[in-house]
Nucleic acid binder design. Sequence first.
DNA 1: TCAAGGTGCTAATACGGATTATCACCGGCG
DNA 2: CGCCGGTGATAATCCGTATTAGCACCTTGA
Lengths: 343, 343
Amino acid sequence: MISPGRRLTQQDIARIAGVSQTTVSLVLNNRTDAEVRIAPETRERVLRVIRETGYVADPVARRLAERRNRILGVFTYEAVFPTASADFYHPFLLGIEECAEEMGCDLLLFTSARAAGERRRIFNEDSRVRLADGCVLLGRAVDRDDLARLLAEGIPFVSIGRRDDAGAPVPYVGADYSPAVRALVDRAAGLGHRRMAYVGTGAGAESPADRMRGFREAVAAVGARGSHVPVIGRTPEELLGELSAAGVTAAFVEEPADAVAIMHAAGERGLAIPGDLSILALGAPTRPVRVDVDLTGFRIPRREMGRRAVELLAELLENGGGTPQELLACELVEGSTLAPARS
Amino acid sequence: MISPGRRLTQQDIARIAGVSQTTVSLVLNNRTDAEVRIAPETRERVLRVIRETGYVADPVARRLAERRNRILGVFTYEAVFPTASADFYHPFLLGIEECAEEMGCDLLLFTSARAAGERRRIFNEDSRVRLADGCVLLGRAVDRDDLARLLAEGIPFVSIGRRDDAGAPVPYVGADYSPAVRALVDRAAGLGHRRMAYVGTGAGAESPADRMRGFREAVAAVGARGSHVPVIGRTPEELLGELSAAGVTAAFVEEPADAVAIMHAAGERGLAIPGDLSILALGAPTRPVRVDVDLTGFRIPRREMGRRAVELLAELLENGGGTPQELLACELVEGSTLAPARS
DNA sequence: TCAAGGTGCTAATACGGATTATCACCGGCG
DNA sequence: CGCCGGTGATAATCCGTATTAGCACCTTGA
């Protein structure tokens, strides 16, 4: 059947079929241009040899010559299959894989990208980003130098998550947080809430900033009072205390894990949720938590974002130009943690 | 900074530094053999240009020339990031990724491998397996023709899960099911159980066969009576009925999802688990289930298997020869579904 | 003064496939 | 007979890097 030693090349096929390597390549790529003519019988003979030997073109050589290889890179700043954030990344990857599969592309996970320190970097000593035709970036905190360099080097990529800090427009697919948060605030206002708080960082990366912006705008629009309760370095009990002290009746919590923690704290203090305090969760947990209640909030369309990123990347590779930027709508989730405000 | 148009090549670096492409390559690869000599100042000059331009070698060309590229393929017969079997595959992938990361390898997921029909095949019309240095196979039902062809073509690979049906020895890392099942049977026998049953297919692939073998041997060794209750096309209620009718006091269930279903059926019938019937689970769920009890059974060392597969693959790539075959021990899990037999 | 030996670098080539330019051949027509 | 156009194939080149063989230059020693 197949010689176990060296693998077959077009040259071998050519020799067996009694033609030139060029002819094999032409037949293989099914070239039928006016410029290129292969006699049907020759074509058939070559195809037969290919079939009999089971020859397949070396994708590497192909890539070198063709300058494309139908490989899409996936770069994540954290490990792709971690135990901790698995639940958060999984839907994105699911969408990415689905779409890549439909397009007949393979996925290259840049697991080798660990630099000297702890964190992964896209451009480490021997960066391998260029192995892929283009790549999808995943991870909430994308290094801005990496981003700038990707742009500068003209590497086709699409970021999952909005980015704006690279000194030039970045192609992305993001979640449209602002309107989603606004919708939640509107709903709370409709239920009589007048004192609301944004619990979370509200800054640092684009996504918290977007949520915070949506919150501020909406609170202003409905004429309610909105405060900001930072979480860094505070215990759930302290957060809860702060909320109570400020007379807040609806807390918009950036991170569901924090929302859950606050709810537990409330339970221990004898506070009813949502009777005494409504809790709105702004997204999906990025830390592992056991969520045993139906949090009212919204769903980040993670799977769709993954799919769309790959689609946009494909378009980028096909047509070249442009900087696609899209925000996908978040779907509101009716939970059980929002109730009318105490009168 | 960097010209956005074409990417830099060693030729460009050479031109800028006023040396030959060869020299750039030598400097880049830090060659300091006796055969190769570069003046320190020349080396420094080249390195400076590389630093200033941010040049990185094209991994594709490198692979073509070097015949290796530090890419490990991962082939799965099912989608890698599915919702359904995610929980089953995840630990394997976690181990694979960890190990690849440590070795500085990237992971290529063959998502494009969908053939005409439904199922994935390794060798489809334009197989891309050869892009990677070698590959890891994942999935319970590996196509035996694919396996044979991998062997015939001399493609380095390691299967996760024992395989024996390819007409030649297959390199694998498997779970050592037989002794694990034997240990459970011994334990049940020690608690007075005399009528036991193996609930599952017990055949089809290697892993159920191994479990079944362990069961039969152990039952014979302890002088108990063991029967086989096939599950295909039967409801949990029917299975339970069959077990009761046969006077079975300890059921060894291949698939934890089935174990859970049987327990629910028992609950509805008023049977106590493990009071009236002990349930032993032989592995991890391959179907999504909500497991709300601590099943007595064993843990398949999935993460370790993933790691080990990559390690063995690396050795295979390094040294060439050999057909590594390893079985990793399963750890017994003390649960709450095994109790002394009713007297 | 000239071979010997060492030093520093480069030309040429391989890797496998895609593409461009060209070539040999044959029949028909002036 | 000789030119032309169409047909079927191929030689040559390119993609970007690694490696091998070897060349030019300089010292040193006899």
